[in-house]
Design a protein around this nucleic acid. Structure first.
Length: 357
DNA sequence: CAGTCGTGGGA
DNA sequence: TTCCCAAGACT
């Protein structure tokens, strides 16, 4: 009764599946962890993080017992840090409220923080063989091309359209294999640029191939606009080897991570006066503190382009403490050799490495 | 709905 | 250089 498409897809999968570490298990904790890591993230980038996480936190209780800061530090460099904070929150919820028993249905999984429709379907099918189709970027692409489906995948209603398609193809008794196969096929064969149509098992029926529209499908309208930001960081270093960090708590980029005291301006012109007017910088200069300025760093995020410079001030710890208390409450004094315990944005980590901190 | 949340890699 | 985008979720 299996749909011919599904049959051929799974045959392809049996020959071409990569041996990924999270494919050897039905443990929902491992599958959940891998799926959160892989959201908007390439396998090559996520794999080492997955291995680090299961080694450090072998079960949901271990993850629940950790500090959020430790989880974020392990996540450092992966981006979209809300994923890590939700991961930790959900681990604590499962460990304490559910006594460690993982939710085992699509609907219940959907209630977990950080678990949306895709991830709930992935866990439900991979761990519990529930017949619910996954729809991720790969699935959009494969189905849009195969069926010539032109719905804009950036519109929220597209999910329902493609879910219905995927669900109609899914064999109820092999949902795990089918879902894995759909994504693997999209990732390895029906790739975004230059898909391997010459060796494709669906060449005869694929609408995109027949009409030469592989490059036009799937349709995606939304284009992200990038906002420039101008950062001037104040790096406070004491002669005793301490450094002052700033926890990022607001709903901005890098929430939950640490950076330095920051002066930000709309543009470079505004920046100049902002620096002169800043109370902490003024007081440091008034004290004649040794100062140096770094090169400009350019750091690209999905919606922002950050131009950053680092102003380093070196002084005695007591002087810095006095000025910080008066002008920059909220900074945290850290021994330089304890920086490895703090989750830092890649921009900050790169600066620290380049200046041999 | 439309915008926002990182980072790295490939064309 | 610039653009796209990668096993999305949340507001």
């Amino acid at each position: 009764m299996t749909h011919p498409f599904a049959e051929r897809l799974m045959a392809w999968y049996r020959r071409h599946a990569r041996p990924l570490p999270w494919r050897n298990t039905r443990n929902p904790y491992y599958i959940w962890l891998s799926e959160i890591i892989l959201q908007q993230t390439r396998v090559v980038q996520g794999q080492d993080y997955y291995l680090k996480f299961i080694e450090t936190f072998p079960d949901v209780f271990a993850l629940a017992k950790a500090d959020e800061q430790q989880v974020l530090r392990l996540w450092q460099g992966l981006g979209y840090y809300t994923r890590a904070r939700n991961l930790h929150y959900t681990a604590q919820y499962i460990a304490t409220e559910l006594n460690g028993k993982f939710p085992d249905t699509y609907q219940q999984l959907l209630q977990l923080r950080g678990v949306g429709k895709y991830t709930a379907a992935a866990i439900a099918s991979f761990a519990f063989e529930e017949p619910v189709a996954v729809v991720d970027g790969n699935v959009y692409r494969v189905l849009a091309r195969y069926f010539g489906e032109e719905t804009d995948i950036a519109s929220p209603k597209a999910y329902a359209t493609f879910f219905a398609l995927a669900q109609s193809l899914l064999p109820a008794d092999q949902s795990a294999t089918f879902n894995q196969a759909m994504m693997e096929f999209g990732a390895m064969q029906c790739v975004p640029v230059s898909p391997k149509c010459m060796f494709c098992p669906f060449q005869l029926e694929c609408v995109a191939f027949a009409t030469g529209r592989q490059a036009q499908l799937p349709v995606k309208q939304k284009k992200t606009k990038v906002r420039p930001r101008y950062f001037h960081y104040v790096v406070l270093r004491s002669e005793e080897g301490d450094v002052w960090l700033k926890p990022r708590t607001s709903n901005d980029i890098w929430k939950g991570l640490f950076d330095f005291y920051l002066v930000e301006g709309e543009n470079e012109v505004v920046m100049e006066s902002a620096l002169l007017n800043d109370p902490l910088i003024s007081s440091l200069r008034k004290e004649g503190t040794e100062e140096s300025l770094s090169k400009q760093y350019v750091h690209i995020l999905s919606h922002q382009k950050i131009y950053a410079r680092f102003h380093t001030f070196v002084a005695s710890g007591s002087l810095i403490e006095r000025l910080v208390e008066k002008n920059a409450p909220g900074l945290r004094k850290i021994a330089a050799d304890e920086l490895t315990a703090y989750p830092l944005p890649v921009l900050i980590d790169k600066y620290l490495k380049e200046t041999h901190f």
